[in-house]
Design a protein around this nucleic acid. Structure first.
Lengths: 146, 146
DNA sequence: TATTGTTATACTCTATAACTATA
DNA sequence: TATAGTTATAGAGTATAACAATA
């Protein structure tokens, strides 16, 4: 049996750890990507564009407004990393990486993977143990309403 | 034995889960705190002020510039939630919650705890299993340099 | 000379609203 | 009429730099 106060303290510790790990993950990502001269959002966009995608999809994935994507796409286009190609629905523009963009995407992907703490700090067993716990944490709470 | 490609995919999944959980934790926090009419940063500041603390300490804890703390302290002072009291070193000002501030802090603390996913979604065993895994994730990588 | 907190200002990020062209 | 993307603009959030008081 765990005492109430201990459980509270443990829970705060765990919450703090999770936030700290996520913050660290963002720093790791920014650091992995910096050598390529790319701000985080541009790098995330490139990673997302393994296949050509409508600008609206990217907005949804990056959790931002479509108008913001226009700016990102402009910057990536200026750098010659992607082009806008028309979709079947002619209102839609697909963002498609150029060859240079694809090459850069591969490099970024490798750099990010290389720094992955999940890969570097945990063994196979630990990863297998961790996943269901994280999944449980993410699940919508069963609303005990107690 | 786990295949390389599987391990990569699993690792991406886990990284994604961690970031998603942290994002969700921030949303949970904001939601828990909203009924008190407090922006997230003000609430975090109050939670930090269980004991009077120099403004610089708060800046460090919130990971922002000292000049930003001046603004936060102003707002909290306007609301009657804290006062600035001189420290031993007379350059220093300590932020000290008023009685009203302490009461509010207790309420916020309870509201945040009540929503804690760590408490609501995991049992004692799961929490005990989770902690060392998170700790390992956070640890500075042993720099394999491979 | 270095440090704490303050002030004024500037910058970055991102959203909102109005617009064009399609549907 | 509704939707995808664009444009111009505005706002929130936060930092920078110069400053006053103290060390």
């Amino acid at each position: 049996m765990v005492e109430r106060a201990d459980r509270l303290e443990e829970s705060r510790r765990l919450s703090g750890l999770i936030v700290a790990i996520a913050d660290q993950a963002k720093l790791d990502f920014a650091e992995a990507v910096a050598p390529f001269g790319l701000p985080v959002h541009l790098a995330r966009a490139i990673l997302r564009l393994g296949a050509p995608a409508p600008m609206g999809d990217l907005a949804e994935h990056l959790a931002c407004d479509r108008s913001y994507i226009t700016g990102l796409a402009d910057k990536l286009e200026e750098r010659g990393l992607l082009t806008r190609v028309p979709g079947d629905d002619r209102r839609v523009k697909l963002l498609q990486l150029t060859d240079e963009g694809q090459d850069l995407r591969d490099l970024i992907s490798a750099a990010v993977t290389e720094r992955s703490r999940v890969l570097r700090n945990l063994d196979d067993d630990q990863r297998r143990t961790l996943e269901p716990l994280l999944q449980a944490l993410l699940d919508r709470t069963p609303d005990t309403d107690q």
